[in-house]
C-alpha cells in the first residue's frame, strides 16, 4: 500500500476546509440536486466555472481535485456510446442490428457524462477538504432525526465510531497476514476460477478470525463494564452552525433553486 488513492483528505486552512462538515455535506447535496436538474448545455458551462471557483477557494491543487474523474475516461466513453446508440431509437440516423445512434442520444450522452464528471469532482472536493472523522460525524448528525421513527441512531453511531477505530488496526493486521502467507509461499492468484477462490483463503480466513477475535474481546470488555445496547444515553450535542456555514448553505440553496427553476 505504497500509493495513495484519489479523494483522500489533505490538510489545509482554506475557507472551504474551515466550514462545518455537516454544512458542507448539505451543500454538496444541494449542489448535486441542482446539477442533476440542469438540462441546458449552457448550464453545464456555468457549473464548470463555479466548480473552478470552488477549487480555487479551497486551495486544492487542480490535479488533486480532478484526480477522481481522471482515471475514468473509459467510463465516460461508455456512457456516451450507450446513450448515443440506445437513447432515442425513433430518431435514429441509421439502424445497425440493435444500435440506433441519434443526435438526441449524443446530446443526452454528453449531458450524463458532464453530470457524472461534476458529481465526481464536487464530492472529491468535499472529501479532500474534510477529515474523514468529521464527515462521519456529519452523517451521524444529519441522520440523528431518524430516531423519531424508531431507528436506534445512537447504537448505529456507536457502531460507526467503533468501526472507524478498527480500520487502522485491521489494515495493519491484514497487511501482516498477507506478508506472512506470502513468505510461506502462498500465491493469491490462479488462472482457474475455482482455484482462484481458494487461493485467497489463506488471506481471508485468518483476517476474519483475527477481526472476530478482536470483536469478541472488545464486546466482552464492554459488557463486563456494564455497557448495555438498549440503554438510552444522553444525546450528543453538536456545535451550532456559524455565520459562514449559513452563508455557504444559502448560496448553495440559491444555486439549487435557480438551476431547478431555469433548468
Amino acid at each position: 500500500m505504497n500509493r495513495l488513492p484519489a479523494g483522500l483528505y489533505q490538510p489545509g486552512d482554506s475557507v472551504v476546509h474551515r466550514l462545518d462538515a455537516a454544512a458542507k455535506l448539505l451543500c454538496l447535496l444541494l449542489l448535486l440536486a441542482a446539477v442533476v436538474n440542469t438540462a441546458a448545455p449552457a448550464g453545464y458551462g456555468v457549473w464548470v466555472l463555479l466548480l473552478a471557483l470552488l477549487i480555487r477557494l479551497a486551495r486544492i491543487p487542480p490535479r488533486t481535485a480532478l484526480a477522481s474523474a481522471a482515471g475514468l475516461g473509459w467510463f465516460f466513453l461508455l456512457i456516451l456510446l450507450m446513450n448515443l446508440c440506445f437513447y432515442a431509437p425513433e430518431q435514429a440516423w441509421v439502424s445497425v442490428w440493435i444500435f440506433r445512434p441519434s443526435s438526441a442520444g449524443l446530446l443526452q450522452g454528453l449531458r450524463v457524462a458532464a453530470r457524472v464528471f461534476l458529481l465526481l469532482v464536487m464530492s472529491n472536493v468535499l472529501m479532500v477538504s474534510t477529515p474523514p472523522l468529521a464527515l462521519t460525524g456529519a452523517f451521524e448528525r444529519l441522520l440523528s432525526p431518524l430516531r423519531f421513527i424508531g431507528v436506534p441512531t445512537e447504537l448505529a453511531a456507536m457502531i460507526l465510531s467503533v468501526a472507524i477505530q478498527f480500520i487502522p488496526t485491521l489494515l495493519e493486521e491484514t497487511d501482516g497476514i498477507r506478508k506472512a502467507q506470502t513468505a510461506r509461499g502462498a500465491r493469491f492468484d490462479s488462472p482457474n476460477l475455482w482455484e482462484k477462490g481458494k487461493a485467497v483463503l489463506p488471506l481471508l480466513a485468518p483476517v476474519f478470525v483475527a477481526a472476530f477475535q478482536r470483536a469478541d474481546e472488545l464486546s466482552l470488555a464492554m459488557e463486563a463494564r456494564g455497557y448495555r445496547a438498549d440503554i438510552r444515553r444522553g444525546r450528543k450535542k453538536y456545535p451550532p452552525f456559524r455565520a459562514c456555514d449559513w452563508l455557504a448553505l444559502s448560496l448553495c440553496a440559491a444555486a439549487a433553486v435557480i438551476f431547478i427553476i431555469i433548468r
Binding site: I159, V162, A163, I167, L170, F208, S219
Partner: peptide, 10 residues
Amino acid sequence: AILTAVCIAL
C-alpha cells in the same frame, strides 16, 4: 453491534 463494527471496518 461490535461484530457489525468489525465487518464495516473490513
